[in-house]
């Protein structure tokens, strides 16, 4: 696998949301609007890159039987660092995302990539993998958030496109499942074509 292939896999072919179906909890909960999805996606991407980087560095020093607890501690530390730094230096962004940041810890994509990729590969590919998966996640969340925001309130990124009342259902929890299902079906179709 070339570096480029490694980088592009996260967007469609191995997209964490649409293809691997990982991290459904933040995916469904956060994406009530496009900006929420993007913010959560980028925060996750940052944690993914940092945790992949550090885990690929220390992987040989960690005995197999305790690798999971060690990984979890590393990931949780990065998330807490992100939360504290955001709270202190970009309070406006923190206000929007504050609730969701601790959720990154329980996002199985982060642990999944640590286990499936970073613990078996060297530093550079691991960083690229983190970047690819993180941006793929951000892409999926932004797409999901945009569709829900548009169908639910007629706006994308808070910019009104249609003035009338829309189908509120899509901003509420059931809408998340509807939209996700259709997007997954669409992605599967796209995937088949490219193969």
């Amino acid at each position: 696998m070339t570096a480029l292939q490694n980088f592009t896999k996260g967007f469609i072919r191995e997209n964490p949301v649409f293809s691997l179906l990982l991290g459904m909890c933040p995916t469904l909960g956060v994406t009530t609007s496009a900006i929420n999805g993007l913010g959560m996606g980028l925060a996750t991407a940052f944690v993914l890159v940092m945790s992949n980087l550090s885990i690929s560095l220390v992987k040989n020093a960690i005995p197999d039987k305790v690798r999971i607890p060690a990984f979890v501690v590393i990931i949780a530390s990065f998330v807490t660092v992100v939360e504290l730094v955001m709270q202190g230096f970009v309070p406006a962004l923190y206000e929007q995302l504050g609730l969701f940041i601790p959720l990154i810890v329980v996002n199985c994509i982060v642990l999944g990539r640590a286990e499936a990729f970073a613990s078996k590969n060297t530093v550079l590919p691991s960083i690229i993998d983190g970047l690819s998966m993180g941006l793929g996640f951000a892409f999926a969340l932004t797409l999901l958030g945009s569709v829900r925001e548009f169908l639910g309130s007629g706006a994308i990124f808070n910019i009104k496109i249609i003035q009338t009342d829309m189908m509120l259902l899509f901003v509420l929890a059931p809408g998340a499942f509807f939209v996700l299902a259709y997007l997954i079906a669409l992605m599967k179709k796209l995937n088949k074509k490219t193969k």
Binding site: N60, P63, V66
Partner: peptide, 14 residues
């Protein structure tokens, strides 16, 4: 080489 999963190694790593 990968560290062995001996008791001492596990405790010290964690």
């Amino acid at each position: 080489a990968k560290k062995e999963s001996s008791f001492f190694n596990m405790v010290s790593t964690l």
